[in-house]
Amino acid sequence: MSAPALIDAPAADGPRRWHRFSVLERIGRSTFYLLALLAIVWSFRTIEIIPEFLVDAPTQTADLFARMWPIDWKWYPKVVHPALVETLHIATLGTILAIAMAVPTALLVARNITGSIVLNNIGRFILVATRSVHAMVWALFFVAVFGPGALAGMLAIAVHSVGFTGKFLAEAIEEARPGPIEALRAAGAPPLSILIKGYWPQVKPAFLSIAVFRWDINVRESAVLGLVGGGGIGMALDSAMSNLYWDQVGLVLLVIFGVVVVTETLTTWVRSRII
């Protein structure tokens, strides 16, 4: 908690009264609560929900799971396995490409490397813009440009990840201690040497941790890109769903679940060793 603002009320009536928040803070908080309440009520009253669908929901859900069972394992080696491998390649390549693009952007954003505020803000805009558009929307773009397939998915993953990786990378660079950098500069090291020998050793743990974390997220994301034509296991999911083969849908969902659990365990282990 931040330090509570202790304001004494007019001491006319007996002992001084202490309040945790100042008057302004209390007005701000009350206004906020009121606005939040209004927003919630407004959303509830105006959102379009079709009641017939709601009544039907339990039967539909039961039907959905009944159709998924038993799961069609025969389908795995033929279609799902190659798609799964493709998904992992998309995620990994996408992460590598994202880092390749995020490093220069992060250098542009970091105030201790790029002195110009204009350039900082240009870099920051790139980070926010790439992050705000979701990977799936990027995939829609790249599918329109490059045609459906792994290339579109990989580029979507890469471009969307630039914002995330670049932001944390820039923060890590800004947190670097200036001592070693000043020592290198005093010795007359050229800028590239300062980057490699001064910043890199300090940023390395954060860098690896960000890369591994983003890879984990990207495995999850790349699993759904196929729904819009981005390649990978999402394609298998999409074709199974359009054919209404729900036992195959169940298989794909199970495989995705397994892969995500494995990658998350793996990345948690790697990160705990890095940090």
Partner: peptide, 11 residues
């Protein structure tokens, strides 16, 4: 999954 369960739309 929810689209299948409760139909298309905001819900």
């Amino acid at each position: 999954l929810f689209v299948k369960a409760v139909g298309f739309g905001a819900l």
